[in-house]
Write a protein that binds this DNA or RNA. Sequence first.
DNA 1: CATGGTTGTTTCAGTTAATGAAGTATTTCG
DNA 2: CGAAATACTTCATTAACTGAAACAACCATG
Lengths: 153, 153
Amino acid sequence: MGTLRSMVTPRTTPRRPDDLTLEVVDLIGSVVARYHEEYEEAAAGHTLTGAQARLLSLLSLEPLPMRKLAQRLKCEPSNVTGIVDRLESRGLVERRPDPADRRVKLAAATAEGRRVARSLQDSLRFAREPLAGLSEAERLALRDALRRMLREG
Amino acid sequence: MGTLRSMVTPRTTPRRPDDLTLEVVDLIGSVVARYHEEYEEAAAGHTLTGAQARLLSLLSLEPLPMRKLAQRLKCEPSNVTGIVDRLESRGLVERRPDPADRRVKLAAATAEGRRVARSLQDSLRFAREPLAGLSEAERLALRDALRRMLREG
DNA sequence: CATGGTTGTTTCAGTTAATGAAGTATTTCG
DNA sequence: CGAAATACTTCATTAACTGAAACAACCATG
């Protein structure tokens, strides 16, 4: 069906990605799936949900106001309230007043929270294993390609 | 960067990933985030949730029993029931009996469902844009690296 | 061929994530 | 000062997800 058309009108479809591009997109889809799988798995290993793990990771670096958390997680502030509530009830996160602005509440990881975040990072290190199959040169090429891909948009 | 360390202690840190690997992992994290963002966006453009879009995409290729859907989506069968319910109530999917086994119900995309799935694919094609910045040689190298990464595990 | 175990699906109860609309403080600025 | 904007919470609602229980149909095996 399509073969005849492509023989007759070889250059009328400028937007149609070539087979190589399609394959690469497909591969990226697989990498995305695998990354997610392992992330959720690592989180579950600490009895955390994905959203909780992501938020805790952010806070392990520095305390942040709720509104900033919402921005980083790309969700509504009211949603962050619940996630922080659950982490707080487990003693992994605490709320502090911001001395500079009494409206804002800073969410901060507790010592225990940081410990869990670190352990999470380590178990996620497992996600790096696939890279072990690549030579240094390949990893360099991969880095450059990914950098360029992300540079756009 | 990591060169000095690797010269001094070439075999004492077998598990600790080098800086290059860490950077690549980080870049993959960004690609994952971007991919998801665009996928959810494309789904939302059709008033579908991510889970619904994923399920519909699977069904656009071939009808599948509920249990197979659960396996593909890596979730419990009871969950699939709800997602299919919602898609069915919108006329995008239908349930048919499996002639070979009266226990199983095949979920199948309707004509409208296939149309939506195709349109979804097309808007997701936007996700391929980042690849446009790469030369053919780079895309080839990227493909090979990704293939090898996924080969393991 | 009966019957007991297994499989495929659904229902139900419960948790989490997420949004959007109010509502309450607090800050900022005309 | 007073009005508008900002930060957070609460509430109602929907979806995704899990695990347990129920039900029907399949399939062995004695």
